[in-house]
Design a protein around this nucleic acid. Sequence first.
DNA 1: CGTTGGCACTCGGTAGAATTGACTGCTAAC
DNA 2: GTTAGCAGTCAATTCTACCGAGTGCCAACG
Lengths: 349, 349
Amino acid sequence: MARRAAKTSPSPSDLDARKATILEAVVAEHIDTAQPVGSSSVAHSADVDVSPATVRSEMVALEREGYLAQPHTSAGRVPTDKGYRYFVDHLKSGVLSSAQQYQVRDFFANVRGEVEDVLEKTSTLLSELTSYTSVVVSAGHSHASILSVQLVSLEARHQLLVTVFSDGSVVKHSVNTTFDANFVDVSEASRQLNALLIGTTLEHRVQVPSRSDGVATLVRESVSVLHAEQPTTDGEQVFIGGSSKVAEVFVGVETVRKVLSILEQELLVVTLVQDILNRGLSVAIGSEHGYEPLSACAVIVAPVTIDGASAGAVGLLGPTRMKYREALAAAGMVSQHLARHFGGEDDLA
Amino acid sequence: MARRAAKTSPSPSDLDARKATILEAVVAEHIDTAQPVGSSSVAHSADVDVSPATVRSEMVALEREGYLAQPHTSAGRVPTDKGYRYFVDHLKSGVLSSAQQYQVRDFFANVRGEVEDVLEKTSTLLSELTSYTSVVVSAGHSHASILSVQLVSLEARHQLLVTVFSDGSVVKHSVNTTFDANFVDVSEASRQLNALLIGTTLEHRVQVPSRSDGVATLVRESVSVLHAEQPTTDGEQVFIGGSSKVAEVFVGVETVRKVLSILEQELLVVTLVQDILNRGLSVAIGSEHGYEPLSACAVIVAPVTIDGASAGAVGLLGPTRMKYREALAAAGMVSQHLARHFGGEDDLA
DNA sequence: CGTTGGCACTCGGTAGAATTGACTGCTAAC
DNA sequence: GTTAGCAGTCAATTCTACCGAGTGCCAACG
């Protein structure tokens, strides 16, 4: 009995060779044509050498097991999310065309400017490579240490706190006071803040002066405003490239609108990408990522790792019938080049 | 003869009262229904009390003069860009619903955070108010003076130049050297840069040391990298809100794609907005702004003026058949609140 | 017993014809 | 100059018939 069970369904999510081949043929063709695929075109495809009738009977099995679906009785089959999942799990990794490889290498050889500019442009590159919408997320600076803080006076009661982190990011915060601060106090507060904060990260709590004079108040206010940043965002930045591809790639205004409106919410996008990474996935298909408005989408992510630490991620967002092999290859190559660009080679730029 | 000419066409772009009423009725109804409007519905509309037949003969005149067009022989009339132009030029300015007014006031009473955050949120607000895509452009800092510059060492050959401007903006620039810079040199360079640049604007040219030692080189490099910013952009920032509205408001994937791909190019958007402002317009309809991909769009802009100086602009982008009165009112109200928010009341926040 | 060819059936998509109805332009009368 | 009436136009809609891709089932075959 155990054997029989093992035979009919060898393992919950493993298929016998012929079913696998057929499933892969269906998925591949549907990705190509966007049409439901019928038994005969599968039977005539390269790796399959059985008759359409046999393919049909396998297809009803695949449908029963949830890999395929039929839009209507007399139509071909369409992959379900589960079908796509099987497909990408058994995908042998591909490689970009040499023209595309050249484009990436050329880009990273010539790109210059501040980190943000580079990431922005990278996002555009990735989108142009794949013709899907791309997302580049840079890691927050919660683990970066503070290199410098400076308090600059804009108006008597309005100071600007400028903080430089070891990862090269710079953030500013407004510090408002209820009293007029004079120039000397601001400089002194700036000096004390430096002494207090340099070398710490945002996670360190520091001892602030409890006196009630102007300088101490400025210092207290500054530290609190700086440390208040934590909860909302970690300082991640998101760069979205090729949002117009959404209109090319999805059919139906409503889908386009839904996807665009998700992309507008940057916090959501960051969360989505990190969610997928945390689950150890590189692709989330349809309902897998749990965002209903994105149920028509697949999301590909590739972490960017510098010196063993996570420095961010790049992602691609396309229809579930996206060209996984090419897209995975593009995301992978770009993430590696990004890592190299901001890793050792940085001083070559 | 002169009199006769004056009678048939009183003035190149002025219409007699009845034609004007009819044109306005056509535009208003078409904005409402998105359908070609026929003579009878115009004749039955409030301000018109002539028969459909009369309306028809006026309509052929309006069509001959370029205010209306006919999609096909047996259809109603649709306004041309020129027709819309007449409509907005003769629009008595409207006012927002009290619910919307409340929403704006409430927003500005409660919003807090850095300038960028406020502008970003303002952009979302404006888009939600109107259900069109909104654009908020903040002026560049070419006229702002430098309050502070600081050189921070990231690596031996990689310094970060952080500049604070009197308008509260902070920019960073990488400064790379071909030699290892030590801490003392960097501090000294920082000190000299402060002495050199504080109080100047980016338009000032300053005298840099010509010596070839480390400090002088750092100073020269820093100044050059800072002044190099000018040509590309002026430091303007663009915040685009509600890009998903594009999919709601335009029909046809191709139009949606074109508009989105324009919105992706921020530089283009800034130029567009400034172009319109420079021409003294507040609305650019269809072909008026000269961007072919936006020929289906109308763009509304309202300058934000603080203490008599231009501090940026807010804009709305919708279809040519947009609700001009409401949109103009919204843009106007938001721009005024923005000016007030960052003007005198700033220290109340 | 798995595989295959054959066959009847289903059902979405398309093409054409007929119909509808919302317009117009024109004209003749007011 | 304005209006009612009328004939004409043309997109949109509906209906019908039909086609064909594709299925499920079954009987025959190795």
